[in-house]
């Protein structure tokens, strides 16, 4: 079984990449292109949440707040200062990351379940600020006419351009996060999820790793927010609410806590599903709630969780060649 999967894995990946590259050519419906762009944004969001929740084991219920901070930061910079989209993207990464740092320093010292409550409250506060600080955010009316990206004077604000942009961003994020989690740093993060006392006993200072993971996670959510603002060209506080945080968490849980591939698939599937099956759209949140329960009972590692591993994370072997073994998780 495992062997079979391994054999078809490569061709499958090639076909997948080709499909993604040619998607706008094959499927000309602008609606599906729109859905795919949204899926790309959600993939970045769920990848980033996976870093702190899936790999480091710290439940964060305020991810929509960082998404929102990035969106507002990006929008305000592009609208008020006429900053170029690409600079705004970097700035929103940094600004969201700084908020992550400020929240993380006190909150990450707490036990895991308290962190969930604190981040939940943070999300509420940020939402309230979006609504009430009208001088800056224009309140419930939101910010309109956010410009699209342009590069050397060429406007890139067509849907196809946005599609390829988010494809590149997602690929880059995936590539870098893959390096990060498969490193000594990544292993250290996972020891914190597994057992903090054991982690400390081998010289790992949990707060440091949690903080870095949290900053990267919130920064990436902010980056996704900036892209979102530019793409939709209009943002309002209603997008950045508790339900959005829950949706992102559902994507991570479905794909697998601690699996990057899982986050990609979870993000795509849970964005497409309510769009394709319009009838379930009203029951979306019920479905996400039930999904979390069912996954935790029957498949806590998610559908693409660490079910098979061949070598150590470094993928290095020093001594004599050994037969590779596959491990199936029970």
């Amino acid at each position: 079984m495992m062997q079979k999967i391994k054999k078809i894995k490569k061709p499958l990946a090639v076909i997948g990449i080709l499909f993604l590259l040619l998607f706008p050519v094959i499927i000309t419906s602008s609606y599906y292109l729109h859905v795919m762009i949204l899926a790309g944004i959600y993939v970045v969001l769920s990848l980033s949440l996976n870093l702190i929740t899936g790999y480091t084991g710290q439940l964060c219920l305020g991810h929509a707040a960082f998404f929102g901070i990035g969106a507002y930061a990006g929008a305000l910079l592009m609208v008020n200062v006429h900053m170029n989209f690409f600079f705004a993207l970097i700035c929103s990464f940094i600004i969201s990351g700084i908020f992550g740092l400020l929240l993380g320093i006190p909150a990450l010292r707490l036990r895991g379940d308290y962190l969930a409550i604190v981040t939940l409250g943070f999300g509420e506060i940020v939402h309230l600020v979006f609504v009430n600080w009208t001088e800056l955010t224009n309140g419930p009316m939101g910010i309109r006419s956010i410009p699209g990206p342009s590069l050397f004077g060429i406007e890139l604000d067509g849907n196809q351009e946005f599609y390829y942009l988010i494809l590149i961003i997602t690929a880059l994020v995936l590539f870098l996060l893959n390096r990060l989690v498969n490193s000594g740093f990544g292993m250290a993060m996972q020891t914190i999820k597994a057992d903090e006392i054991a982690a400390e006993s081998i010289g790992i200072y949990p707060v440091k790793y949690k903080l870095i993971a949290f900053i990267l996670s919130s920064g990436l959510a902010g980056l996704a927010g900036c892209f979102y603002a530019s793409y939709i060209s209009y943002i309002s506080p209603t997008t950045f609410v508790y339900n959005t945080s829950v949706t992102i968490l559902a994507m991570v849980v479905l794909g697998g806590l601690g699996s990057l591939t899982g986050s990609v698939i979870g993000g795509v599937v849970l964005t497409l599903l309510p769009e394709v099956l319009r009838s379930i759209s009203d029951y979306r949140m019920i479905f996400f709630g039930a999904l979390m329960i069912i996954m935790m009972i029957f498949k806590p590692e998610g559908f693409w969780g660490v079910s098979k591993r061949v070598k150590n994370i470094y993928k290095i072997k020093a001594g004599g060649a050994q037969n590779e073994r596959d491990y199936e998780s029970r």
Partner: peptide, 14 residues
């Protein structure tokens, strides 16, 4: 208190 979801070698590496 080992890291049970890691391999033997990974437990040392980390």
């Amino acid at each position: 208190r080992l890291f049970s979801s890691m391999t033997t070698l990974e437990n040392l590496l980390v």
